[in-house]
Amino acid sequence: MLVKRLQPMISHARRSYVELMFQVMGRALQAISEVDEQTRNETRALPEGFLFEMQVMPNGPKLIVEHTGDGKLHFHGDSAPRPVDLSIQFKHMAHAFLVLSFQEKTSVAFANDRMLVDGDVSYAVRMTRVLNRLESFILPKLVAQRAVKEYPANLHLPEKLISGARIYLKVATNFVETVRA
């Protein structure tokens, strides 16, 4: 009985959380591509105008970023200006929640068949590395270790603190800008 009453609330909370995390990640992806050279080394290989999407199947929340050149990513919110080039799709909201609440590593989620790739796999591999890099930047080390396969050895504390703060800052201003606009 209790389960029946709670289920809609859980579903709703999960959905809200996933929507919020997509917003945060989208903005953070844009921010990290502006401050982190190693991220740009990965994203530079993407064609200019390349659209990347993460989505929850069948019509759940979405995150869309575009490579605008020189490794820079631009966050488009949840609507794409044209058909996307690469889509990573979670099979269910519950799986997106597992990954975005850092209970399941992105790479493990791939390995566990939680997600599908639609598009060029080599770009998907690249974007997974970018997402790993992002997670290790914006999360406290303990949580990040759970979220990514290997915590980058070259991410020293000052660099992480400074860049992490800058990314948070950028995410925050971006939020404010959106509210104002």
């Binding site: 790479s107 390995a111 796999v121 080599s122 998907a124 591999v125 997974t128 790993n132 396969k149 290997e150």
Partner: peptide
């Protein structure tokens, strides 16, 4: 860039 690298146990 190869897809199989995603499943390697080490980054």
């Amino acid at each position: 860039d190869d897809g199989s690298i995603m499943f390697n146990p080490r980054e």
